[in-house]
């Protein structure tokens, strides 16, 4: 009898364990929306490689060319997700960076390691002085009134492509 009880008990545990597994909702899909996106105009002309005087500075490792940044709010009405990469038609290199206060008035910039978490039913704001999509090795000037094509890739496999207006930052 005792053995039967033990077996029932064990079965109950197994059932409970199975139940818990079944109950753990498959990670809810993220439901992402990007709003208020804008990109900073470049303050200088892109290096004109054809305009060189015999030598192209742009091949130098030190010459990254002009940079800019894109900002936005990523809203999520679903499960957690992660922005893992971005690309832009106007930039050869696009990275997710964060401006950080390093203490004592020092400000630095760091790539966001492992992507930017977009919390479930929450949002992340990319704004001046914080997270930004850094656009490097720009192929052209970014002037107010233009738009750039930005593609955001998320861990869930979702991709969002959007046209981001180039405009002067809100003062």
């Amino acid at each position: 009898m005792k053995a039967v009880m033990r077996m029932i008990g064990a079965a109950a545990i197994v059932v409970a364990a199975l139940g818990m597994t079944a109950c753990r909702a498959p990670a809810a899909a993220s439901n992402l929306r990007v709003v208020d996106a804008w990109a900073r105009p470049t303050a200088m002309k892109a290096m004109d490689q054809s305009h060189g005087h015999g030598e192209s500075k742009s091949t130098d490792m030190a010459m990254d060319g002009p940079v800019s940044a894109a900002y936005m709010v990523i809203e999520n009405s679903g499960g957690a997700d992660r922005l893992i990469s971005a690309s832009a038609d106007v930039a050869e290199v696009t990275e997710i960076h964060e401006t950080k206060d390093m203490g004592n008035g020092m400000m630095g910039m760091q790539p966001v390691q492992g992507g930017l978490e977009i919390p479930a039913n929450g949002s992340v704001t990319l704004k001046p002085g914080g997270y930004h999509i850094m656009l490097m090795k720009l192929k052209q000037d970014l002037a107010p009134g233009q738009a750039i094509r930005l593609t955001l890739k998320f861990q869930s496999g979702k991709e969002i492509a959007l046209d981001v207006p180039v405009k002067a930052p809100p003062q």
Binding site: M61, D64, V93, E95, N104, G105, M106, G108, Q110, M136
Partner: peptide, 24 residues
Amino acid sequence: YGVHFQKEKPQGTEAAYLVTHTAY
């Protein structure tokens, strides 16, 4: 003026380097 700056090449960037600097 108490200004400091240093070149950094953090992991995960293709920039030749970034410069961390006093922003006062």
